[in-house]
Design a protein around this nucleic acid. Sequence first.
DNA 1: GTCTATAGGAGGATAGAC
DNA 2: GTCTATCCTCCTATAGAC
Lengths: 191, 191
Amino acid sequence: MLAAREQAIIDAVNRLLADKGFDAMTVDEVAGAVGIAKASLYKHFPSKEDLAAAAMAHLMQAAQTMLDGVDTALPPLDKLRAVVEWTMRLKLSGHMPTLPSQNSTLRAALVAHKGYMDGLMDVSERLGAWIEAAQADASLNPALPPIAVLYTVFARACDTVLEFLKMSDGFDDDTIIALVMGTCFDGLRSR
Amino acid sequence: MLAAREQAIIDAVNRLLADKGFDAMTVDEVAGAVGIAKASLYKHFPSKEDLAAAAMAHLMQAAQTMLDGVDTALPPLDKLRAVVEWTMRLKLSGHMPTLPSQNSTLRAALVAHKGYMDGLMDVSERLGAWIEAAQADASLNPALPPIAVLYTVFARACDTVLEFLKMSDGFDDDTIIALVMGTCFDGLRSR
DNA sequence: GTCTATAGGAGGATAGAC
DNA sequence: GTCTATCCTCCTATAGAC
C-alpha cells in the first residue's frame, strides 16, 4: 500500500526524468502525475535529489533482473550485446532516466543511496566478468581496457544518436537498434 | 571594441556551458566572468537563450575553420578521423558547450539564429560529402545510412565516455582519444 | 552602454490543520 | 499521510539614473 504508492511515485519520476531530465523536472509535476499533493510527496522522499536517486536505484534493480535473465549458455560477447540492446530499447521507449553528470548535490544523493550503489557495483562486476571472458576468447578486442568497454556500454544509455535518428523519420526502433548495435560493436569502418 | 566585448562574453558563455551546462549556468555568472553588470549583458544579448545560441554559432565557426584546415590530400576516412579527434579534444579541454536537447525555447533560439543554422548546414554538408566519399572507396561501411554516420560523429561532442575515463584516473588525454577513436571507428569487437 | 536596484515569477521545501 | 496555504531563495529580466 505504502510500497505501491512509492512505486507509483518512482514510475512517475522515471518517466519525467526520461522525458525532460532532472533540471527541467519539477516536484509539482511529479506530484501531479501521481495525483497527490506536493507536501505528501515530501513525506515519502525528503528532497528532489532523493526522488532521482530512488529512480536510479529502481533502474539498477531492473538491470539486475535483466542480467539474471540472460541465457548463461550464450558466448560472453552475445551476453554483452543483449545488455546493450536492452539499454537502448529502454531509452527508445522513453524509460531511461537521464541525470546531469555535473550536479554535485545530486551525485551526493546517489552515492548516499545504498540500494543504488550496491546495484551499480553488482551490475558493474557482472558486466566486467563478461567483458573479461569476451576478451579471453578474443571475440572482444583484448587491447581495450575493460573499464573503457564498461563505460562504452553504459554510455549507450545516454546516446544522443538514438534520439536524433528517432527524430529524423524514416527509421523505426528495430532499425535504429540494428544500426547503433552495428556501430557500437563493429565500428564505422568497413570490415 | 564592441565586437571584442561580445567575443569576451561568448568565450565566458562557452566555458560555463562546457563546465556546468545550460540550466546550471546563471546570467549572473556570465556577467561576473566578463566583469560587467548583468544589465549590461542584456544590452548585448536579449536573453539567456540568445547567449547560448551565440556560443553555438561561434562553435560552428570554429568547426568551419577546422574543416578548412583539413589536408585535402587525405583519404576521406582520415578527414573524418581528424574531425572526430578535433571534437573530442575540444571536449576534453573543457571548451565544448553542451545544451539540453529537450529545451524547446532553447531550440527556438537556435533555429532562429541565422549564423548558427548556416554554419550547421555548411558543416553537415561538408561532412556528408566526406562520408559518401569514404563509403564510395569502401573504407567506411557502405551499409550505414550517411545520416547515421553523421550523427555518430556529432555525438562524440556529447560522449560521456570521455569524462568517465578522465575521472577514473590513469588515462591521459592522448590515451583517451586513442581509445575512443578506436571504439568509434573499429568497434568493440576484435578485428 | 554602464551601473544600481528591483520587479516578477518559478520552484523547492515546510507549517499546520485534519 | 494527506491536504491547503505559504515561505523563501534563486534567477531571468527590466527600470531608470548617469
